[in-house]
C-alpha cells in the first residue's frame, strides 16, 4: 500500500507543479542532447584524426648528392627505430612511376629529366603518430648525413589535434554548465513541490510518517523528470542523425548505436534526476519545517 501511495503522490506532484516540471524536462532534454551531440562530434573528430594519423606517411627525402653507401647508412639508421612500423625505399624511378600514377603524365616528358629525389616512405606505429613525436623524429632524422628533408602533413595534424582538443574542452565546460543548470532546475522543481505540499508533509509527520515515505515521492519525481528528459533527448538525437547528419553523410550509425543512445541518455537523465532530488529533498523538508 505504501508503494501505491508513493506512486500516487509522485504523479500528483508532477501534475500539480506541471509548469516547472515541463521546464525541467525540457532543460534536461536540451542539455542531454547538446552533451551527447558534443561527445559525438568529439568522437567523430577523434576517429578522423586517428584515421588520418594511421594512414599518414612520413617521407624522408635524401640529398640528390647522397651516395649509395650513405643511403645504406640512412636505411640502417632508420631500421633501428623501434617506432617505425614499415619502411620502404623509393628510388627515383619508383617516384617517377608514382608521379605518373597520380598525375597521369610522365615526368620525363615534361622536364626531360627526373628531378624527383630518392626517399624513404616511413609509416610509424599508431601510438607515435602525434605531432610531438613527429617533430622529434623529424629533427633526429634530418640531422643524419645525406638527408635533405623529412616531410609529413604536420599542419593538418596539428590543426585537427587542436580542434579535437578544443571540442573536448568545450564539451567538459558545457557539461559542467549544463549539469549545473539541470541540477538547479530539478532542485527548484522539487523545492516548489515540497513547498506546495508542506501542509501534507506536516500532517504526515504528525501521523508518524518516516523520512523515507515523506521524501520518496520527491526523489521519484526527479528520477521521472530525468527519464522523460533523457527519452526526449534520445528522440531528438535519433531525429538529428536521420535527417541532418545522414544527409551530410557525417556520421553513419547503425541500430546498435541507437540502442546506446537510448541507454546513455535515459540512464544519465534518471541518474542526474535521482541524485539531485535525493540530495536536496531532505534539506528542503528540514528547512521548511525548521521555520515552524
Amino acid at each position: 500500500m505504501k508503494f501505491f501511495f508513493v506512486i500516487k503522490q509522485t504523479f500528483s506532484n508532477l501534475w500539480r507543479e506541471r509548469t516547472p516540471v515541463v521546464a525541467t524536462i525540457l532543460t534536461i532534454c536540451i542539455a542531454l542532447t547538446i552533451l551527447v551531440a558534443l561527445f559525438e562530434i568529439s568522437f567523430v573528430l577523434y576517429d578522423q584524426l586517428r584515421d588520418l594519423e594511421s594512414n599518414m606517411m612520413v617521407e624522408v627525402y635524401l640529398d640528390p648528392s647522397a651516395t649509395d653507401s650513405q643511403v645504406k647508412v640512412i636505411q640502417s639508421e632508420l631500421e633501428r627505430y623501434p617506432t617505425i612500423e614499415r619502411l620502404r625505399f623509393v628510388s627515383k624511378e619508383t617516384a617517377a612511376a608514382i608521379f605518373n600514377e597520380e598525375f597521369g603524365e610522365n615526368i620525363m616528358d615534361i622536364l626531360d629529366e627526373n628531378p624527383l629525389p630518392v626517399s624513404f616512405e616511413v609509416r610509424l606505429l599508431r601510438e607515435f603518430n602525434h605531432s610531438e613525436y613527429l617533430a622529434l623524429f623529424k629533427t633526429q632524422v634530418e640531422s643524419l648525413k645525406g638527408v635533405d628533408e623529412v616531410h609529413y602533413r604536420h599542419a593538418l595534424i596539428e590543426k585537427l589535434e587542436k580542434v579535437t582538443e578544443a571540442v573536448a574542452i568545450a564539451g567538459i565546460f558545457v557539461l559542467i554548465i549544463l549539469v549545473f543548470a539541470m541540477n538547479l532546475l530539478i532542485r527548484n522543481t522539487i523545492k516548489l513541490s515540497v513547498y506546495a505540499k508542506r501542509r501534507q508533509i506536516d500532517i504526515m509527520k504528525i501521523l508518524g510518517a518516516g523520512n523515507l515515505l515523506i521524501r520518496m515521492p520527491y526523489i521519484l519525481e526527479g528520477a521521472i523528470e530525468g527519464f522523460i528528459g533523457g527519452f526526449l533527448s534520445a528522440i531528438c538525437l535519433i531525429f538529428a542523425h536521420k535527417f541532418i547528419a545522414g544527409s551530410f553523410a557525417l556520421v553513419e550509425i547503425g541500430t546498435s548505436t541507437y540502442k546506446v543512445l537510448w541507454v546513455l541518455t535515459i540512464s544519465f537523465g534518471i541518474l542526474i534526476g535521482f541524485l539531485t532530488s535525493a540530495t536536496s529533498v531532505g534539506r528542503f523538508v528540514n528547512k521548511i519545517f525548521a521555520k515552524k
Binding site: M1, K2, Q200, G208, A209
Partner: peptide
Amino acid sequence: KLIDNMSVFDNVALPLVIEGYRRKYI
C-alpha cells in the same frame, strides 16, 4: 489538518498507509 485534495477515505486511510497495512485491511 486534513489533506484537502484527498478523498475522505484516503485521509482516514493515511495513518494506516504510513504503517504499511495491506490494502484490503485498510
